[in-house]
């Protein structure tokens, strides 16, 4: 019955773009869920898709069983500082990072599980006043942190026992970096967004700051999610956490902006707005803002303040599916599984639903 009630509502999307409930897991600890992510479990040349859930005081690893059931394999206890974010490491098995802190990230830790002897460990990667962090391909982690007026943008290489000795510093912009995104199709490039709505580009190999490109103040506090290099242009997916539905045009939650890095000029390519108009209101019942989101390839998912999850096709600029608030509560988390067309939607009570997209 519960599964039926959580059947997603389609917003004029083709059938193949729908969300299908695949399985559900629930932490029985009754702790408030703060994040969910996925990880590859690698053993004996095989890869297994696992789910990682976090509450304030612990992080749990879940492995799939037969019949779409999930088994909690291990729980890392993390101590005094609350967990606020899981930081997945793309293309890396048996490792995941977590951010701990209160309002800001104060500490990053590496959680490690050995496939050989089923041992589970955790180690400290970094401490400080950390403003942004992203797991990169190739077992790397990039972060921006502040010490007084000084900003440090640093890449650390991760070993199975924590951070490696070697690291690299990237040239920081004057303004604080709030988010990072790897550039698909360009291995040595990294982009970030700053507090003054600049998109910055780095050369990861040399650490050079190559360009600062202004986005404009119409949509403050833009956050970069993904970037793609194609035909001499840099396409950046930005989200706007303060988007609100508007009668006239509908403020976009996500925008794809094309930048010419040579001239720093930009042009908006596609807007993806909050569900608006009659059908949106019928489904959601009230005007809603955007809380948080996640982007993978051309698909974006976001949790709205109404407690619904909305999925967009960023190339079409259109909502393709909507999960209304569940019978047991509002959605609080929406994440794409690494490397698969699977959406994880979570509620604060620890219920995580996996949908095939």
């Amino acid at each position: 019955d519960v599964a039926e009630q959580w059947t997603p509502v389609l917003l004029d999307g083709p059938t193949e773009e729908s969300l299908q409930l695949v399985s559900k897991l629930k932490d029985s600890s009754n702790s408030c869920a703060v994040d969910v992510s996925t990880m590859w479990w690698e053993a004996g040349g095989c890869r297994e898709f696992c789910v990682v859930t976090a509450c304030e005081s612990s992080v749990s690893l879940w492995k799939p069983l037969a019949s779409d059931r999930w088994h909690k394999v291990y729980t890392w206890q993390v101590g005094e500082i609350p967990v606020i974010q899981i930081i997945p490491l793309p293309d890396t098995g048996n490792l995941v990072c977590i951010a701990l802190g209160d309002l800001e990230i104060a500490e990053i830790r590496l959680l490690f599980c050995s496939s050989e002897n089923d041992s589970f460990k955790q180690s400290l990667v970094k401490t400080g006043t950390i403003k942004a962090v992203l797991g990169l391909k190739g077992r790397r982690l990039v972060s921006s942190s502040r010490t007084g007026q000084e900003q440090q943008v640093e890449i650390v290489w991760l070993s199975e026992t924590g951070r490696s000795k070697d690291g690299q510093t990237l040239m920081p912009p004057e303004e604080t970096v709030l988010a990072f995104a790897e550039v698909e199709g360009m291995r040595d490039a990294l982009v970030g967004t700053t507090t003054v709505n600049d998109v910055v580009v780095w050369n990861l190999r040399t650490g050079q700051l190559l360009k600062k490109m202004h986005v404009g103040y119409s949509y403050p506090a833009s956050i970069c999610h993904r970037a793609y290099s194609d035909s001499g242009l840099l396409f950046v997916v930005l989200s706007h956490p303060h988007a609100k539905e508007s009668e006239s045009c509908g403020n976009p939650v996500f925008r794809v902006i094309a930048f010419n890095p040579r001239t720093a000029r930009s042009a908006a390519v596609v807007f993806s707005s909050l569900p608006a108009g009659h059908s949106g209101r019928q489904v959601l019942g009230k005007i809603h803002g955007y809380l948080e989101g996640d982007v993978q390839d051309a698909s974006a998912a976001a949790v709205l303040t109404s407690g619904a999850v909305v999925v967009w096709d960023l190339l079409l600029g259109r909502c393709t599916a909507l999960l209304p608030p569940g019978p047991t509560g509002h959605w609080a988390l929406a994440r794409w599984a690494t490397g698969s067309a699977c959406l994880l939607a979570g509620q604060r009570d620890g219920t995580i639903c996996l949908y095939r997209y």
Partner: peptide, 23 residues
Amino acid sequence: CSESDLGPISLNWFEELSAEAPP
């Protein structure tokens, strides 16, 4: 997007900017 909006486009922008930017 066209060159009239965005200015001259270079397929090698990353290498060119890396050569021009301070080390």
